[in-house]
Every structure is written in C-alpha cells, then in structure tokens.
Computed example of a mutant assay.
Amino acid sequence: MTLLPLVLLAAPLQAAPAPLPQATCPAIDADLPAPLKGWSTTGTGMAMDRAFLLPAPNGEASANFTIAKGGRYRVALDQAGWIDLVQGGKPLTSAGHGHGPSCTTIRKIVDFDLTPGAYTLKLTKIAKQQAKVMLVAPAQNE
C-alpha cells in the first residue's frame, strides 16, 4: 500500500467570500425615475400619473377608471399583493411584472396592454389597511 504525502491530500482552505455591502439609500423616494415621479404626490381618488390611497379593509381594494388612449399601462403598488385589472367582468392578462426601483416605497409594478374604455382596478391580499397605488400612462413608460 502506497501512502501519499499529506501535502497532496490536504486541499487548501479558502475563505468564504466577503458579503457584498448592502445598498444604502440617502433618501427614500427622492430619486424616482421620470415615469414614476408622481409617486411622491399622493392624493385621494384615482388620477393618471399620480399616486393615490385606497382603503383596503379585509385586504381588498378597488377603483374604477377610464382611459381614452390605448397602450401599455403600469400599475405600481406600495406593498405585496395581487394587482388585477378587469374589463367587462373579465380579468385581463398582465403583460409583465416586476419590483419597484431601489430606494423607493414601490414594491410591485404590473404592466397591462389596454385599449380605450372603462376598467376596474382590483387589489387583493393587501396586508395594510390602505394601499398606495399609481397608474402610469404609456407615454411615461417609453
């Protein structure tokens, strides 16, 4: 039986990589991208390109709106939850979804391809008593 030298059997130990530094935000919602600038102007009642507050008792909220020009609209939300748009009683299929930009209170964004007409925004599985929401027009998305 041949014994190998201990040096050949021992693998060099490597230190675990240092954790990446956490991103720090000098200010929350201070440097919003142009299409989302209206997020910092909160009102009541649904308006295009401006955030608004919806009461969400029992984890649900809804608002009706009408658009005159078709295109890809975005719905931004301040918390985890489901974002649906309904037209004529039928839920629409989203065209995409993602998270809000870093250093903002936008937690979720869902895109929808809309044609002119009336819609209902439905939020479900909302944890807070109210939801901050914003509808972004297509011209702002480009």
Rank of each mutant, 00 (worst) to 15 (best):
15 A>Y: 02
55 P>F: 05
47 A>E: 09
97 H>P: 00
96 G>Y: 03
41 T>R: 15
32 L>E: 10
64 N>A: 10
18 A>F: 09
47 A>I: 04
101 P>A: 13
42 T>G: 00
87 Q>I: 01
58 N>V: 10
29 D>M: 10
70 G>A: 15
132 K>D: 04
54 L>T: 04
73 Y>N: 02
49 D>I: 07
112 F>P: 10
80 A>H: 10
81 G>R: 03
130 Q>K: 06
16 A>H: 13
1 M>T: 11
81 G>Y: 01
76 A>H: 11
1 M>S: 07
76 A>W: 12
95 A>F: 05
120 T>A: 06
71 G>Q: 07
21 P>F: 05
67 I>K: 01
66 T>Q: 14
52 F>H: 02
58 N>A: 15
60 E>R: 15
139 A>E: 14
136 V>F: 09
93 T>Q: 13
111 D>Q: 08
114 L>I: 08
16 A>G: 04
97 H>K: 11
7 V>Y: 13
45 G>L: 05
68 A>G: 12
135 L>R: 07
61 A>W: 11
123 L>Y: 08
65 F>Q: 05
129 Q>F: 04
82 W>E: 10
116 P>L: 09
87 Q>S: 15
30 A>C: 11
89 G>H: 07
27 A>W: 00
139 A>S: 12
131 A>C: 14
8 L>Y: 06
23 A>H: 10
95 A>R: 12
106 I>H: 00
36 L>P: 04
73 Y>D: 02
37 K>W: 09
132 K>E: 10
100 G>I: 12
91 P>D: 10
77 L>P: 07
86 V>H: 04
89 G>Q: 13
35 P>L: 03
118 A>D: 15
133 V>W: 13
33 P>I: 08
50 R>A: 13
37 K>N: 09
83 I>P: 01
82 W>G: 02
124 T>H: 01
131 A>I: 12
98 G>E: 02
134 M>F: 12
128 K>G: 01
93 T>F: 02
13 L>K: 06
95 A>I: 05
53 L>C: 04
118 A>Y: 01
134 M>N: 12
11 A>E: 14
4 L>T: 08
22 Q>A: 14
123 L>G: 12
88 G>Q: 07
56 A>R: 08
37 K>R: 15
60 E>D: 04
111 D>S: 11
56 A>L: 06
48 M>H: 03
91 P>V: 14
91 P>L: 12
35 P>V: 05
2 T>W: 02
100 G>R: 04
57 P>H: 06
85 L>V: 01
72 R>C: 02
99 H>K: 14
23 A>L: 15
115 T>V: 13
125 K>Q: 14
2 T>F: 03
103 C>E: 11
94 S>K: 03
35 P>A: 03
117 G>A: 04
135 L>I: 15
118 A>M: 04
33 P>N: 00
137 A>V: 08
81 G>F: 07
127 A>F: 07
64 N>S: 11
105 T>F: 07
17 P>T: 05
15 A>R: 13
77 L>G: 11
55 P>C: 05
71 G>I: 04
24 T>Q: 15
72 R>Y: 00
17 P>C: 06
74 R>I: 01
138 P>T: 09
115 T>F: 08
84 D>K: 02
111 D>C: 00
57 P>T: 06
16 A>T: 11
30 A>S: 15
110 V>E: 14
124 T>F: 00
138 P>E: 05
74 R>M: 02
48 M>F: 13
78 D>R: 09
123 L>P: 05
